[in-house]
Design a protein around this nucleic acid. Structure first.
Length: 214
DNA sequence: AAGTATCG
DNA sequence: CGGA
């Protein structure tokens, strides 16, 4: 291990692939405020279970904030300016969210990232996300910034082909994963959530994924 | 299609 | 486990 690797480790930066990194504990000190903001957002745009284009109910519950929010139904995946559930615009991105996403992206090698959408996923025991790619965002140059809050989960980080080997990463409260550039379209997912309790979130895990969708 | 069951 |  050379000096550069040691410095990365001290900074909590663990490279995963070209353009992808795990920032261990990067959001931990802001965990309380992030969870409080999620509660405020969910009061305006409640968590709901979306349906895939194939007609299957997703086990994860979702909401969004930002100028665009992610939606799925029998007609497909898309971003919308209004919450289809309420008919109102999505709640605004809190400044805390924007600053966190920008800072994490910069540390991972993507300076100047300004997200306009944050998909918020709520996992409860048994909730999973099968291997998929994020490909509904207009800006394919901007990275994805993923923030883990609450109880731990096993994140699946694959490659550009579904059949590529998958790395299993245990993500805990405050961990941040960033992927972009040559890793922008990697397949990823989450293993079924195990039962546990976290003082801030109870028996659930909250994941924030920041994107440049418009 | 971000899901599931089933098979080799 | 990977593919259908």
């Amino acid at each position: 291990m050379d000096l550069f690797d040691e410095q990365e480790r001290e900074a909590g930066l663990q490279p995963l692939a070209p353009g992808a990194a795990l920032l261990r504990g990067h959001a931990r000190s802001r965990g309380d405020a992030l969870v409080a903001a999620v509660h405020d957002i969910a009061a305006a745009s409640p968590f709901r279970h979306l349906v895939t284009p194939g007609g299957h109910r997703m086990s994860v519950a979702t909401t969004s904030c930002g100028t665009l929010g992610w939606h799925s139904d029998e007609g497909g995946y898309r971003y919308t300016a209004r919450d289809p559930h309420t008919g109102h615009p999505w709640p605004a991105l809190p400044e805390l969210f924007v600053a966190l996403a920008r800072d994490a992206a910069e540390r991972a090698g993507f300076p100047g990232f300004v997200p306009d959408a944050c998909l918020i996923n709520r996992y409860q025991p048994g909730t999973r996300l099968t291997l998929h790619q994020d490909r509904n965002e207009r800006d394919e140059c901007a990275p994805i910034v993923s923030v883990s809050l609450g109880i731990p989960a096993t994140f699946l980080f694959g490659g550009l082909q579904r059949s590529d080997p998958v790395r299993r990463l245990r993500l805990v409260h405050g961990d941040v994963v960033v992927w972009g550039g040559p890793s922008r379209f990697v397949f990823h997912g989450v293993q079924p959530l195990m039962h546990a309790e976290h003082p801030l979130t109870g028996a659930c895990r909250i994941n924030l994924t920041f994107r440049r969708a418009g």
